[in-house]
Design a protein around this nucleic acid. Structure first.
Length: 567
RNA sequence: GCGCUGUUAGCUCAAUUGGAUAGAGCAUCUGACUUCGGAUCAGAAGGCUAGAGGUUCGAGUCCUCUACGGCGCACCA
């Protein structure tokens, strides 16, 4: 149990015995300012407000009646009712040795495991992935990793856009060109060209627009030739996606596109009509709810076609019925908030029971502060972004490590480039918009992946020099402030992961790891390890160094970032 | 018009959800190396948290109003 949890348990016991009406907390948190202590509770002030007592008096009672765990200093009362606690180095050392024996490094298992579907990334067939896809892909991947780590059963789903109206225009131009073979190496570029051509023609010529609609209708009614073309498009797109995901190290349990639900849509709409959840309005089928918005939720167009909301309803049902999901987390752009409110509200009326969450993130903007869009504008392709990331990393590597051979260099450059990109994207709070710049996404100084990786590499280097391949397990002696501070920080790891996972905000974990790396660098300056004054202290510090490395690696892994042994 | 969401140091962002003297990075300035890997560390400087009220022991955080942005509001996804 972490230091905080030990103290929390005691404080909570006292609270439940004396102020059961105030609530269970948690009441203990780390002090924002180290001068006050290591941990604090402000419970007395809350209790005073709710019961009409005096905060200072309650704090005095709490401090005298509720003793902290063994090897802690006597609590101190401060302000209008703070109680401050300080663990003595021996208590820190004991807790850290416990952490050393815990394969999960202090990350607790949930007491309520759920089956959780995480729906993320969701690129469109016949289009290349661009910067607009990166946040969903990385955020979804990290959430899946963290929730899995906490003991949930996670199902990662890529809900591919493989059935939209864009296929009418694409088929139009592709067939007009005589259905040429698609070159696997430039498949996406070719397909985008066809789409662009079809789109332009259809927009400018009503007759062509009509033909595009007919193409779509033919595809959706199962015309064999069109189905064959469509399957080819999907195949080639899938190859493209797979390569991007390989580089990013992102995987899915299920790649199931919109087309998979096509056949059940007519019955679904009928069912909603029949149960009076939906109604006909202006020839279309809609779900109305003035509490959500004036305009209704459209599930069938007046021409009989279905919309993505219809497909989402079918997918949602399938995940609950077939995959037994207790919870579905959708990771998308914040502009879809209204859509998901409608979707969740409709699903609830329809009797689909699961916890439904829309985890949304801000838009990536262009230099003009307008969202990068795929139709107009010139979005940066993900493949290009990844290539640039590697390129920038290799420029820096060549300078720092002229000794490396070409192969070693490009391998490290790839890892470092991707790591920087992933970290930079996850560092800002997720509901902020941000303006895309190469400099920001591929920075190597300050609060970045290379900074944290550098700390990790230094831990590995010291272990190597001590002829160790893993963290040793020696008694800990925390003498210097720098090592004691680092030790206490390591004990907060579990809390950091729980916070990031439960808020669905990976940037909390970034902040934690950055603090660990900073404290380690300071420890590194202040405390010789291999040349420590005594063997016992050397052993203790080797253990601390090893644990620091273990936690940095573990945390980076949760963020989807690979580590390396030297850089 | 309605709804969602922002506004914190010159710039980019934090702040454990109402807790103590609001913290980092970048940029600027000053120091520390024949190093357990300097992709580092120590220090300086930088703030009326957009503005005005309110709630209370206590507000960047909550409520109201105002100003200025961004996004979304029926047959695209």
């Amino acid at each position: 149990m972490s230091l905080r949890a030990q103290l929390e348990a005691r404080v909570n016991t006292w609270v439940m015995a004396n102020y059961p009406q105030v609530g269970p907390g948690p009441w203990v948190r780390p002090c924002a300012d180290a001068r006050h202590g290591h941990f604090q509770t402000h419970f007395p002030m809350v209790a005073a407000k709710e019961t009409g007592g005096n905060g200072r008096e309650i704090a005095n009672r709490l401090a005298s009646e509720c003793s902290p765990p063994p090897d802690w200093e006597k609590p101190e009362v401060a302000g209008g009712g703070f109680v401050n606690y300080r663990a003595m180095p021996r208590a820190v050392a004991t807790a850290l040795q416990e952490l050393r024996r815990d394969p999960s490094l202090g990350v607790p298992k949930t007491t309520n495991p759920e089956t959780i579907v995480v729906d993320f990334s969701s690129p469109n067939i016949a289009k290349s992935m661009h910067v607009g896809h990166i946040r969903s892909t990385l955020l979804g991947d990290t959430l899946a990793r963290m929730l899995g780590r906490l003991g949930h059963r996670v199902i990662r789903i890529n809900h591919l856009g493989d059935w939209g109206t864009q296929f009418g225009k694409l088929l139009l131009a592709y067939r007009a060109a005589g259905r040429p073979p698609i070159d696997p190496d430039h498949a996406i570029d070719q397909l985008e060209e066809f789409y662009k051509k079809g789109h332009q023609e259809a927009e400018s010529d009503p007759a062509k627009m009509e033909k595009a609609r007919a193409e779509l209708a033919a595809l959706q009614s199962g015309d064999p030739e069109r189905i064959r073309d469509w399957k080819l498009f999907c195949q080639r797109s899938s190859d493209h996606f797979r390569e991007i995901y390989r580089q990013l190290g992102v995987t899915f349990d299920l790649e199931k596109g919109e087309s998979a639900y096509h056949e059940e849509l007519p019955a679904l709409v009928e069912e909603l009509l029949h149960s009076k959840i939906a109604s006909v309005s202006q020839g279309a089928v809609v779900v109305a709810n003035p509490e959500i918005s004036e305009e209704p939720f459209l599930i069938r167009k007046s021409d009989g076609a279905f919309l993505y909301g219809t497909t989402d309803l079918a997918a949602l049902r399938s995940r609950i019925r077939d995959l037994k999901a207790d919870r579905i987390i959708y990771v998308t752009d914040g502009r879809q908030q209204l859509h998901f409110r409608w979707l969740f509200n409709t699903a609830e009326k329809w009797g689909q029971h699961a916890e439904l969450e829309h985890v949304w993130f801000g838009t990536i903007l262009g230099p003009d502060r307008k969202p990068l869009k795929s139709r107009d504008g010139t979005p940066i392709k993900l493949s290009e972004l990844l290539r640039e990331a590697k390129e920038r990393a290799s420029v820096i590597l060549r300078e720092k490590r002229p000794d490396l051979s070409g192969n070693q260099l490009s391998e490290k450059a790839e890892l470092l480039g991707i790591a920087s990109l992933k970290y930079a994207d996850q560092l800002p709070g997720r509901n902020l918009d941000y303006v895309f710049t190469w400099e920001k996404l591929l920075a190597f100084d300050g609060n970045t992946a290379p900074y944290i990786l550098n700390a990790y590499v230094r831990t590995r280097s010291i272990l190597r020099k001590a002829c160790l391949t893993m963290t040793p397990n020696h008694p800990l002696m925390l003498e210097e402030p720098a090592e004691e501070e680092l030790a206490r920080q390591l004990l907060l790891y579990g809390d950091a992961v729980v916070l990031a996972a439960s808020e669905r905000k990976p940037h909390h974990l970034c902040g934690y790891l950055y603090a660990v790396a900073g404290m380690y660098h300071r420890f590194f300056e202040a405390c010789p390890v291999l040349q420590a004054p005594s063997t016992a202290l050397r052993d203790s510090r080797l253990t601390l160094v090893g644990l620091t490395g273990d936690i940095l690696r573990d945390g980076l892994t949760l963020l989807g970032i690979r580590t390396l042994e030297e850089m």
